[in-house]
Design a protein around this nucleic acid. Structure first.
Ligand SMILES: [Zn+2]
Ligand SMILES: [Zn+2]
Ligand SMILES: [Zn+2]
Ligand SMILES: [Zn+2]
Lengths: 174, 174
DNA sequence: CTCGTAAACGTTATAGTATAACGTATCAAT
DNA sequence: ATTGATACGTTATACTATAACGTTTACGAG
């Protein structure tokens, strides 16, 4: 299988993102079908908007996209759809940005059932989930006596691609 | 030294919290004095309000406290003071709650210069920082090629004290 | 097929969080 | 005293999220 949003690596700058989006929608459809959930029009459109890129998007930006063609949706429609998508693991909330991003591994045995573990590139905006099992284990060891119920782990910095660009610029300035 | 907010353990339910607050203010004053920073009246009052408890408080709740005696401060005053306090490590932002909490180790060699690593009790609301050096190391190992710049690590659950209470209730129901 | 129920949705209003922009006051160094 | 930088006051506005209500739609039981 070609490398799509499935992987836990940052997406190449010029990758064919249509494949990511199409695949994410297909997976969501399959998951809802399997669980007898209603993957309604609003929910599908919101998920598609979230998957328009690998960068988090705010609820009101989703709303604007939804209404771009003359729609008259209210904020509630978006928030309700997001509640559904969050509840079933199809999107993640990015607390540090008050925004939302598609989940690349819905339904899979998330090592991180407790929450999301995200890498956020401040340059290109892309977000990927990383395998945080070792991190969760370290957290558990660091918090003896504390009954962990959920984790918000959001790491910001530069993804490999943007780091390369930054270095080139720095060299060019010399 | 008696156990105050200095420690990385959850505060006892009935502890003498005045000591925590007084000590936090004194430390802030000393830190600002050393760095030639202006620890102005608004900043002091905002920090004191944040330290009114070990639970995070929202900016508008701080504002309400500030204006409780008939003050006429605007939200900007609070946000500007919080910006200052955040910039100098005197408070932490709790992204998952859109709220703020006092830093118990200002100026110390935070293992976590990159961000905050917090345990949040959903029952009593108390927040403590934990020693996240091992966690940061695990994050770095889990994100090869990613240039980490900041970390938001917020773990929610039940603190030891509240966990004990919950268990007692569960037993009582039997 | 009709009915009854629960889920989803539409709509309006409101609550809660954060910043922009501009002028004034204060501080500290020359 | 002059001056430049920092902090503050004030107003307005942007952005994020939920409450509460009634209506519609989906779907299984009978
Ligand atoms: Zn893509
Ligand atoms: Zn990037
Ligand atoms: Zn205390
Ligand atoms: Zn507690």
């Amino acid at each position: 299988m070609a490398r799509t949003q499935q992987s836990r690596t940052f997406p190449q700058p010029g990758h064919n993102h249509d494949r990511c989006a199409v695949q994410a929608l297909a997976r969501a459809e399959a998951l809802c079908d399997a669980k007898r959930l209603r993957f309604t029009s609003v929910r599908r459109r919101v998920l598609a908007t979230v998957w328009a890129s690998h960068a988090p998007i705010g609820a009101y930006d989703i709303l604007a996209q939804l209404n771009a063609g003359g729609g008259r949706n209210a904020p509630m429609a978006v928030y309700r759809a997001l509640d559904f998508l969050l509840a079933h693991g199809l999107v993640h909330r990015v607390a540090s940005l008050n925004a939302f991003v598609g989940c690349a591994h819905p339904g899979e045995a998330h090592s991180h059932k407790l929450g999301s573990q995200l890498l956020i590139c401040r340059a290109c905006g892309s977000v990927v989930e990383f395998d945080g099992r070792a991190v969760s284990a370290a957290v558990a060891r660091a918090a003896p006596g504390f009954a962990i119920e959920s984790e918000v782990i959001e790491i910001s910095g530069l993804c490999p691609h943007c780091r390369r660009l930054t270095r080139r610029k720095a060299i060019a300035r010399d």
